[in-house]
């Protein structure tokens, strides 16, 4: 539990951070809240020679509305997300999800950008961002580019981020007023990653589901956007038959690993149970 030696950098601007990351190359890792990276360094599963701490970059913090989108700075902590009136009004599922991440102490340190960018399938934000149709602003030596959350994740810890790039902001289209939402997470204890979790956002009209989006956490080596499962809900009254179909379609795209949380078959089934419960709760919250 003793990390190897490394140099620590604390740039004050995104430009400085990018320049450092370009200069130091593969030996450097950006540091956000550190709650994934530091434990990996302590077990020497990660051995970066340089840590580029993004904490001192004020531009990376904050939540604002811009056009029809909510834009969240990558270094915004989960604690801040939970306390945001703007998110509570427009995107309450972010607050609900954030409250299920780790514990209050970690949420003071943990950031939405770190959670999204690290590529750990156990993190909660990636599937939620896929569910919400978010896009990531990646800033690198050649400027800013945007990548959809649904396109960002390639494998466990492998993402669309190129060397020298930093996830600087997350842009989320605001769902319609009256949308229903829920994040259901099964975990063994406070602080654990999900055995399985499901994010659901949907709209209802005249007793029928008019749109739906589903994200699944920690049941594959990337977060899963369950497009077919969501489509199976649209046009239905979200009755048992519709939920059964969506659950079956969602389960079909999972490929979880067996671990202390349970064997693969269990985690697949729990993805289904979480989806069913999230959909039912989202339905109960949606304005018709």
């Amino acid at each position: 539990m003793i990390p190897g030696s490394f140099d620590y950098h604390r740039p004050k601007s995104v430009a400085d951070a990018v320049a450092l990351l370009v200069k130091l190359g593969e030996d450097a890792r950006p540091l956000a809240g550190g709650h994934s990276l530091i434990p990996m360094m302590k077990t020497r599963l990660a051995t970066p020679e340089h840590l580029v701490d993004l904490r001192a970059i004020g531009d990376l913090k904050g939540i604002r509305e811009e056009g029809g989108d909510i834009v969240i700075g990558a270094m915004t902590t989960q604690h801040t997300l939970i306390g945001s009136d703007l998110l509570a009004a427009k995107l309450p599922i972010i607050r609900e999800t954030s409250l299920l991440i780790a514990d209050p102490q970690i949420r003071y340190m943990g950031t939405i950008g770190g959670n999204a960018a690290n590529g750990d399938p156990g993190n909660d934000m990636p599937a939620l961002m896929q569910c919400l149709g978010a896009s990531y602003e990646l800033t690198g030596p050649n400027g800013v580019r945007r990548v959809a959350a649904r396109e960002f994740y390639q494998a466990a810890y492998f993402t669309a981020l190129e060397t020298g790039e930093i996830l600087t902001a997350i842009r989320i289209p605001v769902p319609p007023v009256g949308h229903g939402y829920a994040y259901e997470k099964l975990k063994r204890k406070i602080g654990d990653y999900a055995t399985a979790a499901a994010a659901v956002v949907l709209t209802m009209s005249g007793g029928k589901c008019t749109s739906a989006s589903i994200g699944l956490t920690n049941v594959a080596d990337t977060p899963l956007w369950a497009e077919e499962a969501a489509n199976a809900l649209v046009g239905t009254a979200l009755d048992k038959a519709a939920l059964d179909k969506a659950v079956a379609l969602a389960e079909a795209i999972t490929s979880p690993a067996a671990d202390g949380r349970g064997p693969a078959e269990y985690r697949t089934k729990m993805a289904g149970v979480m989806l069913r419960r999230a959909a039912e709760r989202a339905k109960s919250r949606a304005k018709n």
Binding site: D103, K189, I190, G191, D192, G260
Partner: peptide, 16 residues
């Protein structure tokens, strides 16, 4: 030996 850390070895918190 599997799960020899507090991530897996169940040490309940006040919540559980």
């Amino acid at each position: 030996v599997m799960g020899a850390s507090f991530m897996d070895f169940f040490l309940p918190t006040a919540v559980e």
